[in-house]
Design a protein around this nucleic acid. Structure first.
Lengths: 339, 339
DNA sequence: ACTGGCACTCGGTACAAAAGAGTGCCAAGT
DNA sequence: ACTTGGCACTCTTTTGTACCGAGTGCCAGT
């Protein structure tokens, strides 16, 4: 049904449309790509492609535009990932190497991705669920108030203030801290519930109350919540897109402010650096009808920690974007492995 | 020169223009506000106001539009701060009362402000410079690596990883921690340089190297940097504004991604809850030519900690916005004082 | 199976005319 | 001295019409 030449035509249409943002006609196609056939022939192929739903025409006498299905075929079978330029490689290294701490890595990454792809970048913090406990600190703020600080091997630092019913002294805090650490350090955050199940009961009576408050906070606010943090950058790149879809920028901006939506957008982290492309309606969210999302998981070694990605118009430069996202994900993984 | 009626006319023009976003003519004015005079009279007043530079007409035969100078006069002398509705008061309380920690307070605040004013909200974290040291924690991550955690009375928690030249043991860390705390707790962050001046020298030789590394990090990354953090919300509200100034949304989005610009925008925090309104060019930044910024300082008690505010089109509802910003600033101050 | 030719369909543009909104100014009224 | 109604004038916006060009679909010929 779709011989090689028809696929060539589709590829050419996608490429032209992406760069010009105008419906592409048969004549322009044969001029810009040396297909070795006449416009009339291309027209026949186009008719076939349209029948199959890969392209469409906005109105009766305009050129053709790729459909969602068309883009899908393009990324699946017709495109090869564009290698990054030397300048781009260098930019990635320079940008990320100077990072101070995890926050800084994440901020720099989002900025880098946005600049590289000239689109909206989204980066998720390393998931708590997949991290290991490196250290737990208890700080006595006042006789009835503790601060709990959890440090993970991925560099995340989470803190919570805990109000106690009664007073507690320094020595008890120190003891509690030691026992908590011996019990938890080195384990996954997801295993905290299991590990802590009997913890309170085995505490000396003096510490019992404080211990149970601490455990409660640990379980409630650190483990249960799956609202892993996400940050966004490059929103100003939306304005370029806005020229085409003046109405579609509002819902996108809204989506960018909804953590939940963004997290769903990035999807489950799978194997590190694995690329996912979601085109148009393949994103569940309403407001992203004509947007595409390219995501990759990143992680240290073989462990996927979280995802990052880029959001742009459906007519984006897929090969280039995929290359950038993939390279950045790989590099971030390496950096996190070092620290 | 400007009698009361002319001021009434100016006020009416500002109000009408803000709500309709269209140049307002003499006839429409007398219809919508009971000024008790005829359109012709209003026209004369308008001519006078135009001579003085308070209003202008986009083209020869259109209605009048307030100028920057006109808005300035309006906020300075013609507007009374609109009291918040009961629903709004309740919203503020409900929104902010459930906050868990400082991050949460700030995030909720920015969201609240954006919703309340339907504009772009900007909130600055409590300035480190104005905070007091509540506790300093040193955590041994590995024999050559320390994590330094600084906790302030405003709830900020800053952490840095420190790589040491040589090994250090638990006991030394504990000793160092104790001495650091006795030296610093209760003092302003800005005074750390003075307080730490002789610290390293008075340390036992065994700790000397580690102490100097820790002190160096404290001074370098916590005190010197004035890039206090800022977060932004409600960017999607820009799209409403974009209808009028399609070209002006891009620079604004760009400004919102520049921490430095935002910090300048919020300006120096002065007395708590003091309102500042900067109209159009009064903001230094290029891209905010036709935007206004309403800011207020917030703080606990009489101590200003930082600023928060709202950014919107020059034609914004000043009385309403000022009321909202002021109320939120007051409430955030109260919440921080409690914790 | 490909190609050239041709009639047809529309969107975009250019131009002119008309409509509408608002002003400035003047002469008359209070 | 201030206010008012009237009126001519200006400038934008809208409407209507014609036209051009890009692009298609189809058909007959190679």
């Amino acid at each position: 049904m779709l011989d090689d030449r028809k696929l060539d035509v589709l590829r050419a249409i996608v490429q032209d449309f992406v760069s010009t943002n105008e419906p592409v006609g048969s004549k322009a196609l044969v001029e810009r790509h040396h297909l070795g056939v006449s416009p009339a022939t291309v027209r026949n192929d186009m008719a076939a492609l349209e029948d199959e739903g890969y392209i469409a025409q906005p109105h009766t006498s305009a050129g053709r535009v790729p459909t969602e299905k068309g883009y899908r075929l393009f990324v699946d079978r017709l495109s090869t990932i564009k290698p990054l330029s030397g300048a781009e490689r260098r930019a990635i290294e320079q940008f990320l190497d100077g990072a101070l701490d995890l926050d800084d890595v994440v901020r720099r990454t989002v900025r880098l991705l946005a600049q590289l792809t000239r689109q909206v970048a989204v980066v998720q913090y390393p998931s708590l669920d997949r991290s290991l406990v490196r250290h737990l600190e208890l700080v006595l703020l006042s006789p009835t108030r503790l601060m709990l600080v959890l440090i993970t091997d991925t560099g995340r630092v989470e803190q919570r203030v805990i109000d106690l019913a009664g007073d507690i002294d320094d020595a008890s805090v120190a003891a509690l801290r030691t026992r908590l650490n011996t019990c938890l350090v080195g384990n996954r955050v997801t295993e905290l519930p299991t590990l802590l199940a009997d913890f309170v009961d085995s505490e000396p009576a003096a510490c019992r109350a404080a211990a149970s408050a601490v455990v409660a906070v640990l379980l409630a606010s650190l483990v249960d919540r799956h609202d892993d943090r996400v940050i966004v950058g490059g929103a100003s790149n939306l304005t370029r897109l806005a020229l085409d879809f003046p109405d579609s920028v509002h819902p996108v901006l809204e989506a960018l402010e909804e953590q939940v939506v963004l997290i769903k957008l990035l999807g489950e982290a799978s194997t590190p650096t694995e690329l996912t492309v979601r085109i148009g309606d393949e994103n569940q969210y309403e407001g992203l009808r004509n947007a595409s999302v390219v995501t990759a998981s990143y992680g240290s070694g073989s462990r996927a920690l979280a995802s990052l990605g880029v959001l742009g118009p459906m007519r984006m430069d897929y090969p280039g974007t995929m290359a950038a996202v993939s390279a950045v994900a790989r590099y971030v993984g390496r950096i996190l492995a070092e620290s």
